[in-house]
Design a protein around this nucleic acid. Structure first.
Lengths: 261, 261
DNA sequence: ACTGTAGCCCTACGGTGTAGATATACAAGC
DNA sequence: GCTTGTATATCTACACCGTAGGGCTACAGT
């Protein structure tokens, strides 16, 4: 039987120079899992990899290595890699907290917006998963954690007096806008950070002058992007617009909604 | 207009596309390039693969097979696979047509919005690339075709009287909203199409009743989603809001002078 | 005729997700 | 005690991926 290295009592990790939070404590017996591992632990480790190195560097093998486990053993906690990606979106989205009892839904929406923006800035590499995974999975099959903000937000709106259809309307406009904003803000990549000239810093000098005069002229404005302010002004427009267009009646709801829109 | 999703008018040379290794067929004329191949041809073939089977099924090998070429030879027309993906976004985005001379910028924006929505519905599998690729590439390094709509839209706004900063403001709000809407609309996947009951069709029956009462109650409303109407009402809010918040000074209204640099 | 050069193709390397066989550990029954 | 069933952990293997590097062919210039 070919058994490569370290025959006896397991722990074949002497070649592992990575950070291990484990001093030599394996005296008692042989096989000993260091950390019990759960779906949460797995996802947390995956999140760390993605945060640090990007989605494309996340693989089951690397994840197993980070957890000091055989890659195959991970399939006990996630049916496949797609589920890990969905789980990442869940881990991040689940951090949104919505107070459904707040009667001022506009105020609460503002809070959610800023929380969401903050999460996106902390985990920029997860944002593609956030906006993209739902396109691959029908609503009913997504991790519950990703649906919970939806449910809470709907609850908030309905309690504030919207009927079902309008609540959905508002939800969609609002989160659509949020997704859009975040995607916009994260695009503001800098090509050459230590360059002082805005044009060079953004790499805009590469664009043909005659074809892209406007864009090139906007270099200084692009360079002074303020995501928070941009979000605020967008929220102003959207929320007041939603308020005037779909005025909620007072907090009494009638569940019998007719067909059609 | 590009081909609709399911319908497919076969081009004449398509009979060669399927993988059939016919041994006695090649000796007639020796080495023979079937089609000259260019970047455009390559991207078009890639788009077809993605439209039909999704992004994850696009590989250089499969692309080479579709073009009846050695996979390695493709690297002559694209430096790497990422460039192919960027190129796909370009091919689709380049189909947006913006009339920068239209003095009614709101009207023109509406047109762009509906064009964009249409493109997204025709090429749903490309949408993740559309919204995601820009996160990986600084502005100045993107394919020019993806920047051309940006430039045109800015041109439109500036001609309509916005100053640089406000034009960028409007552009961002507008396209952010558009991205958000499209992502929302494409999420409306159906789990079980032939089921008549809305709850089962959307797979919502899988959700715990006590945890997701609102969401489950919304099944009928979810099922009767009308993307066009939703987009329209969103545009109403956004565009009127933008108009009142950032009033352009006054339209320059010079349909004769095209340069203006 | 010879040589440079440019394009095309093949092979190979190191990676991927994961099916299936295999090894190991532990509970229950006799 | 022993056997046995079952759950878990690990290993091996397969089919695929992107693409570096080298070799091959064909033609241009001399």
């Amino acid at each position: 039987m070919p058994h490569p290295p370290t025959e006896d009592a397991r722990t074949p990790r002497d070649d592992n120079s990575e950070s291990v939070d484990d001093p030599g404590d394996r005296d008692t017996t042989g096989p000993r899992p260091r950390t019990p591992i759960t779906r949460g632990v797995l996802l947390h480790a995956a999140l760390e990899i993605v945060d640090r190195h990007g989605v494309e560097h996340l693989s089951m093998r690397r994840l197993g290595q980070a957890l000091d486990r055989d890659p195959m053993s991970l399939y006990r906690y996630a049916p496949n890699k797609a589920a890990v990606l969905d789980g990442l979106a869940e881990v991040v989205l689940d951090q949104l907290s919505i107070d459904t009892t707040d009667t001022d839904w506009v105020n609460q929406a503002r809070s959610v917006a800023h929380q969401f923006r903050r999460l996106a800035l902390v985990h920029p590499n997860v944002v593609p998963l956030l906006v993209t995974r739902p396109l691959a999975t029908p609503l009913g099959l997504r991790p519950l954690g990703t649906l919970r903000p939806l449910e809470s937000f709907l609850e908030l709106l309905i309690r504030a007096g919207f009927d079902d259809a309008d609540a959905l309307h508002v939800y969609r406009s609002f989160f659509g806008f949020l997704y859009g904003h975040v995607l916009n803000e994260l695009q503001e990549l800098v090509d050459n950070p230590e360059e002082t000239d805005d044009l060079l810093r953004l790499g805009l000098h590469r664009l043909p002058i005659r074809e892209f005069p406007r864009l090139r002229a906007l270099a200084p404005v692009l360079a002074s992007y303020d995501g928070h302010a941009e979000l605020e002004s967008g929220l102003d427009i959207l929320l007041t617009g939603l308020q005037t267009q779909l005025h909620p009646v007072h907090p009494i709801h009638d569940d019998t909604s007719p067909g059609g829109i």
